[in-house]
Nucleic acid binder design. Structure first.
Lengths: 189, 189
DNA sequence: CCGCTCATGTAACAGGTTACATGATTTA
DNA sequence: TAAATCATGTAACCTGTTACATGAGCGG
């Protein structure tokens, strides 16, 4: 039941439509969770039924009518209970890691390709996150912002995304270097 | 269909029983994937039916009879196809991150507790992984081992685990520092 | 006029989690 | 004698993914 609380957390800052939320969860914008649009819409329906969020229709002239949601007091209480309850460790679950585990028994070519892609993707996300951080803290320094800012949650999760992607990038680069060196050596012999 | 290939990858090094595999996937030993015992047993059944692994019964006098599995040629071919196919980026999906996203709206006490736990867990895993690396490379240096070792896949995934857990640990410590400083300041005022 | 964005879903399926079951042997 | 380890599963459930559907406006 974590998507539920991820949606609540995403609605803390401002009212959002299902569409906006779906985009945020589909791409890496809401870097703290990932979900497909279908899941988001379904979860919004359930959340409203349970009274944890409330929606209001906003009629637009050129665009279709949308429904903006906000967190209710009951929703806030649910979030608080969720935050207080224990959570188990999260695991790394990544196809590419499985492939590297089998690296000695499979063709290294595609592996190198995928690791290169992944490293590039990690670098792109890092840039994006850094940009987000700059926007959030404005003209304040990071220390200043984290000490006195009144909404630091998204900043901290963004730092989490950066830590994750740095690990990703560094590992990809290291693994690439090893696999490429071995492949080059095999080609020479 | 990644558990399938994770099991194949785990069986590359040596024959294992369902029980041994289950333990490896349940705890963090097989640091490249996580799965519950029930999943592992079910997957082994399917893999054997599909001819990607083969098992032999080993009768023991004191212990129950166990079944040791090894990868077949068909299994190896399947792994190779899997490694060549594209894989999408993996996402960070972690309850604790959702909680931190909501940090400004929920009680910081439990958050601090959970972050402390998580940091300790990350440190423990790091030590465990470092130990594993030392065992795998023996008296060789890392460079030496990665250049000339004949089974480097597990070493590389272990490096991945280390990169992941370092990110985890650093982020937990940073977030802890911020939340604790803010909580202390609130208490004083 | 074709594809993209806005806006919202349904249905079927695959994969992961929780709960439960069995039974012998070794260790504290 | 109670708990942990070895050894293997079944059944129900929850969550996530893939495929498909609808319809209006806007930009090239």
């Amino acid at each position: 039941m974590a998507l539920r609380h991820a949606v609540l957390a995403a609605l803390l800052d401002r009212e959002l439509s299902g569409y906006q939320l779906a985009k945020a969860f589909d791409l890496g914008v809401a870097n703290f969770w990932h979900a497909l649009p279908q899941q988001v819409y379904a979860e919004l329906t359930r959340l409203e039924q349970d009274g944890l969020i409330a929606g209001r229709d906003v009629v637009q002239d050129t665009r279709p009518t949308k429904r903006l949601f906000h967190v209710t007091d009951a929703g806030l209480a649910a979030l608080d209970r969720f935050a207080a309850a224990g959570s188990k460790a999260s695991f790394l679950r990544d196809d590419l890691v499985v492939k590297v585990q089998a690296a000695d028994h499979v063709d290294a070519g595609p592996l190198i390709e995928q690791l290169t892609e992944r490293a590039a993707h990690a670098r792109a996300k890092l840039e994006h996150f850094e940009e987000l951080l700059r926007t959030m803290r404005g003209d304040r320094t990071e220390e200043e912002f984290l000490r006195h800012g009144e909404r630091i949650g998204p900043y901290l999760t963004c730092l989490g995304g950066i830590a994750f992607e740095q690990g990703n990038r560094d590992w990809c680069e290291r693994t690439l270097a090893v696999l490429e060196e071995r492949q080059a050596r095999r080609a020479r012999s």
